[in-house]
Amino acid sequence: MNESRMIEVKRNILADNDRAADVFREARKAEGTFFIDVMASPGAGKTTLLLALIEQLRAHATCGVIEADLESEVDALKIKEAGVSSVELNTRGVCHVEMGMVEKALAAFGELRFDYLFLENIGNLVCPAEFDTGAHVRVMLLSVPEGYDKVYKYPPMFAVVDALIVTKSDYLSLNPDFDMDALYRQARVLNPDLDIFVVSARTGQGIDEFAAWVRSCRETAMV
């Protein structure tokens, strides 16, 4: 065998997914659809928050939801029951959503197009952070019952999102150990411009403010 030599490669390992995500983002923008990736651990309240948010947006805009789960149609049915278009994306064990899946999910809506399209990502604070899903903004939820200390345990997710939504704020009185100041401080270590909202879908606290942020992001992204 001959001696070794180096070949410079310098290629992004996720380049194919990233390219497809850019194409998808541009295509949605061209048709006036603002696409939001919603990430969180299981049970953080993604579906409930989406329903509360959509309730605010739907008076003046059309909304659709891609519900990603390992199995079942539970969430998609919940969204449909509220009269909102929804497609269930079952990943059958895959821990994250990639562009091929997003494209298929959009195709499942047929000719339907929306002003706001949401991806409720797989319930997981690790893997979804790694994959661009073609969204215009990415948000994550952290529910009060989960505890503020998740910010120390899952730094990458907090680093890649545009907004952090602290959900189930009505549980704050039951969880006096929830250190909101520490959460704000730590979440902004890697992401100093992170927008943070404290909401409760049950009481309605903070939903107006979050909806206003979503609308203003759409205006910015659609320019």
């Binding site: 001959n2 001696e3 070794s4 030599r5 180096m6 070949i7 490669v9 996720l14 990458p156 680093a159």
Partner: peptide, 13 residues
Amino acid sequence: GLEFYISKIEVAG
């Protein structure tokens, strides 16, 4: 801190 790429490969001729 979020890099993820193949920088080079070492090959034998």
